[in-house]
Structures are given as structure tokens and as C-alpha cells.
Design a protein around this nucleic acid. Structure first.
Length: 530
DNA sequence: GGATCCGTTGTAGCT
DNA sequence: AAGCTACAACGGATC
């Protein structure tokens, strides 16, 4: 009798440590088929930008190398997901002839709507073929988001105190699992050609730069984690406060950890991050949520709890968590479409916004506060365009694009959610180096020089506002506004004031139209009854 | 159950 | 120069 073959289907969780499905498969023995399905449906520049696709392929190559050290290997199959897996269940997969899977394990997807639906279809296909399929709970987060909802009385936490309270109620986070020391061998007759393809083979042109030299994979992620925690003997991690980090640092020395891409793909487990952080926090006084490093992990938990609560509606406008604002519609309004294209291309005429948008496109990463600035500018601040368009661009281009986190942040920044700042708090696209909360620490204009090179010869004092430069200065710098670099797309002073008024009006209308609760009617009727 | 408090991170313009 | 005020006054949590 041939030994049973168990597949571990990788999706997120691209690691050996803290990987419950892999530990379970190692325990079962027999033959192990670690598999990643590269679905060509997603290998499209309009869905996934080149930097992120490269990060994925690097992560797969690293995963394969680590598996090989333990007697296994990763099968990367290019094909439609459900057809590929169903073929394996039937012993008739074109890419892996002769391989039949008897059981399959994967890390459970609870939140992303298309992933949940896909998994349900795969589970049904497995059942129909008599293959035992198991979705193993919870390796992507600190807590099971269903339990977070439970700890909040069925509601999702929308403030950090609520999240901290929920975390306390849920108690200890499970310790991260060790990577299995050895793994069962692959099935007999596995073709050797099924490996990680190149970016070019997937139809991409290799992008020029990687953010801070980040490379995908568990090995690089763990090294980055340990380097961050070891900085200044742990003092840096203990003192970390997000609002104090700098938005314009772009080269070798970022002011944050840049671990988010590794968390998104699961190259680094959130539970391992938390456990190692606890070790470092034990070394002395440390910052607290929301601003601390632990707070950053808690925001992720909040995003997932809210996304679970609201499902597909979490990405829609309006929705039960998203105020109805009459944004200009780029689908029907040519001027709005042009503004959207200018924002996306980094050609708004505001160098800070443009540098950030070009950095995003080119490297797949921008600092948190730069995300705030460009998101506010696109929506309530200046361009009056729907946040869902911005979320689409971020989802495509960010290395760390994560459905729940991305929508949670856009809902907040667009001003439409309960966790949004007051709508009249609008970021200036011409940040003041001394007092802006965007922490633009770039008096020399190096950030603009790097990503908006057509302004390189402009004196530093005009770098973030070229339209204020005298004509002779512009001419000497070779800048022709409206030609070599755009004039400001909108006049921020005028436009933001206008938009604040429009936003207020829309919110008042929403409140007036709110059908459900009788907050003003109730007391009256009660009084009448009494 | 109504009042009060609080929420990771604003900016401009003034003294 | 640091600190104040105006802007305009949300909505969920808490007691």
C-alpha cells in the first residue's frame, strides 16, 4: 500500500515557523506535498504591481530553500487554483502527473470575501473526491477575530482602548510554533521542473528598486525582525512611537521597521513578533498602544475584526461603516477621472504628494504618514474622489497590501468611518518641516530629489512648493510649470475649505436621513407616554 | 439613560 | 519661539 500523501496548500503564511498546517502534516508522516498555486488571474499588473509580485516570488523561493533543508520542497504550480487542486484530488493534475493527494491542509481564511468563497469551493471539491480537507485556524493574527468580536459583545473594536481591553479579556496569545526539524518526503515521481518562475515569465517587467532593499521571504523577514529588536540593545523598539517616525526617510535607514510586507505574506508570524517584542519589553520601560510597536500589531487585529464583522461591505462606499458622501465619480465625470490619473501618476503639482505616489509605484512602500497625506489629499482634503479608488491603487501597489488593513485605513483616512479623525483635520500637501504632524524632516528636499527628479535643481526652500519660486529661479532650475512639472492641480487653501464645508453638509444630511434610531424622537414620545 | 469623556498622530495665524 | 486659538463641534464608550 502506497503511503498517504498530504498536501499543505500555502497562500499567506509563507514560512516554516508558527505554521500549524505544516506541523500537523509533519506529525501525520507519509508523503508531503507543499504546494503554492500561482493563479495567472492575479498575475496582472492591474491587480498586483510588479514590486509586490516580485516580493511574492522571492518569498516562494525562500520557502522552497527552507523546505529543501528539511527533506521537502515547494511545488509552485502555475494554473487556475480550483482546477489545479481538483486535479490533484483526482490524481489528474496536468502539472504534476501521477500525483494524487489524499488529504489537504491549509491555514483558514476567515475574512477576505473572495478567499473565503474560494476555500469553500475547494473544500467542496475535496469532499466530492473523498479527500480530507482541513482548514487550520489562525496563524495570520494574534487572536482569532471571531473571539475578538466575542470579547467586545459581538461588536468590532473601533478604538485602541477597546482593543486593549479585548486583548486582556482573551488572555495569553498562544506561543508561536517551532518550525518542524524534518519533514516527510515528497511523493514519488514529482517532476523537478515545478519551481518558482521569474517575474518576466509571469509577464512582468522587473521594477527598478526595492524599498530599503527588502527582499521577500521568511529568512529576510526574521533577520529584519531581529535587527529591529536588537537596535540600541532593544532601546529603539521599547521607545518606538509611530507618530514620531519620519515620513520622508526613503533610503537605507527607515524610521520604522518595514516589517509590514512580511506580516502581510506571513513570512513573519505576528505571534512570533509579539513574543520577541515581549522579550525586549522585559528589558525596561516601553511605549504603550496605540503608538508602540505592540500597538501596531493591535491595529491589525482591529482591522481584521472590523472586516470580519462587515464582510464584503467593508470595501464599499457607502456601507454600514461608511458614511454616504457625494464624491465626484471618475467613471462618469471626465474632470474627476483626470484628477484621479494625476494623483495615481504622481503629477498633482504638489511635490510631497507626487514623491509619495511615485515612491509607491516604484518601490511598493511608503511611510504611514505619507499614506495619510496622499489619502486625505485624494478624498476629503483636496480632490474629492472616492476612497475606494485610492484603496484599489494601494491594494495593487503596496508590498504590504492586505484587504482588511487597507480598507480599515482608507475608511479612517477618508473621514467616513467612526474611527476617522474629525473631518476638518485636513493635512496640508505642503508640509511645514517644523510643525507638521506629517513629520516631513527634509529641509534639503532629498525626498523630492529622489522621486521627483525634474525638481532637482530647484533651491531647497522651493522644493515642496515650486509655484512659489520666482520666475528666474524656476528658469535657472530648468523647471517650466505646466510643462516639465505640473502646476498645482487644485488650490489647497481654497479647495480644502470648500471640501470641509461639503463634507459637513453631507454628514448633516446623513444624520437627518438616518431612519433607524429615534434619538431625538424617543425622549419626546417617552415624555408623552409618561 | 443622559451627560460626559475620549479618540495614535491638523493647520494657520497670531502673540 | 513656544503656545494659544479658531476652524466647527463627530460618535462610541462609559458611568
Amino acid at each position: 500500500m502506497a503511503p498517504k500523501t498530504t498536501a499543505v496548500w500555502f497562500r499567506k503564511c509563507l514560512r516554516l515557523h508558527d505554521n500549524a498546517p505544516l506541523v500537523e502534516a509533519a506529525k501525520r508522516g507519509g508523503r508531503l506535498l507543499p504546494i503554492f498555486v500561482l493563479d495567472p488571474h492575479f498575475a496582472r499588473p492591474e491587480f498586483v504591481g510588479a514590486p509586490r509580485y516580485r516580493f511574492l516570488l522571492e518569498s516562494l523561493a525562500d520557502l522552497d530553500a527552507s523546505l529543501r533543508k528539511r527533506g521537502s520542497r515547494l511545488c509552485v504550480v502555475r494554473g487556475e487554483t480550483e482546477a489545479t487542486l481538483d486535479g490533484l484530488f483526482a490524481g489528474a493534475c496536468d502539472a504534476l502527473p501521477g500525483v494524487k493527494v489524499d488529504a489537504i491542509l491549509w491555514e483558514e481564511e476567515l475574512v477576505e470575501p473572495w478567499g473565503v468563497a474560494r476555500d469553500a469551493r475547494v473544500a467542496a471539491a475535496a469532499k466530492a473526491r473523498g479527500v480530507a480537507a482541513s482548514a487550520v485556524a489562525g496563524g495570520h493574527l494574534l487572536f482569532d477575530p471571531r473571539e475578538v468580536l466575542g470579547a467586545c459583545g459581538g461588536k468590532a473594536p473601533t478604538t485602541m482602548p477597546a482593543m486593549v481591553k479585548a486583548a486582556a479579556a482573551l488572555g495569553a496569545v498562544p506561543a508561536p510554533l517551532e518550525a518542524p526539524a524534518t519533514l516527510p518526503p515528497p511523493p514519488d515521481g514529482l517532476p523537478d521542473v515545478v519551481g518558482v518562475p521569474t517575474l518576466e515569465a509571469m509577464g512582468y517587467e522587473a521594477p527598478p528598486a526595492a524599498a530599503f532593499g527588502v527582499a521577500g521571504g521568511e529568512s529576510a523577514g526574521l533577520a529584519r525582525l531581529e535587527a529591529a529588536l536588537a537596535r540600541d540593545g532593544g532601546a529603539w523598539a521599547r521607545a518606538f512611537e509611530k507618530p514620531k517616525t519620519k515620513s520622508t526617510k526613503f533610503d537605507v535607514d527607515p524610521s520604522t521597521t518595514v516589517l509590514s510586507p512580511y506580516l502581510k505574506f506571513g513570512c513573519v508570524s505576528a505571534r512570533l513578533f509579539r513574543a520577541r517584542l515581549a522579550d525586549v519589553y522585559a528589558g525596561g520601560p516601553h511605549a504603550q498602544p496605540p503608538t508602540s510597536l505592540l500597538g501596531q500589531l493591535y491595529f491589525r487585529e482591529m482591522a481584521y475584526a472590523n472586516a470580519l464583522k462587515h464582510g464584503a461591505a467593508f470595501a464599499q462606499s457607502p456601507s454600514p461603516v461608511c458614511a454616504d458622501i457625494p464624491w465626484d465619480d471618475p467613471a462618469t465625470d471626465a474632470a474627476a477621472a483626470a484628477r484621479l490619473r494625476a494623483w495615481e501618476a504622481g503629477r498633482t503639482g504638489y511635490p510631497f504628494v507626487d514623491a509619495a505616489m511615485r515612491q509607491l509605484k516604484e518601490t511598493g512602500w511608503i511611510h504611514h504618514l505619507a499614506r495619510h497625506a496622499v489619502a486625505c489629499f485624494l478624498t476629503r482634503g483636496d480632490l474629492w474622489l472616492p476612497w475606494t479608488e485610492g484603496a484599489r491603487v494601494f491594494d495593487r501597489d503596496l508590498l504590504d497590501a492586505d484587504w482588511a488593513v487597507n480598507n480599515f485605513n482608507w475608511l479612517g483616512l477618508a473621514g467616513v468611518a467612526s474611527w476617522s479623525p474629525p473631518f476638518f483635520r485636513v493635512y496640508s500637501p505642503v508640509p511645514n518641516h517644523k510643525q507638521s504632524s506629517l513629520n516631513v524632516d527634509d529641509a534639503a528636499g532629498a525626498y523630492v530629489d529622489r522621486f521627483v527628479p525634474e525638481l532637482r535643481k530647484l533651491p531647497a526652500k522651493y522644493k515642496y512648493a515650486p509655484w512659489t519660486a520666482p520666475a528666474a529661479v524656476l528658469a535657472a532650475a530648468g523647471v517650466v510649470l505646466g510643462d516639465t512639472y505640473p502646476r498645482p492641480l487644485v488650490d489647497h487653501k481654497v479647495q480644502s475649505k470648500d471640501n470641509i464645508a461639503r463634507f459637513k453638509e453631507a454628514q448633516q444630511r446623513n444624520r437627518a436621513n438616518k431612519p433607524k434610531p429615534p434619538p431625538k424622537g424617543a425622549p419626546k414620545t417617552k415624555k408623552q407616554k409618561v
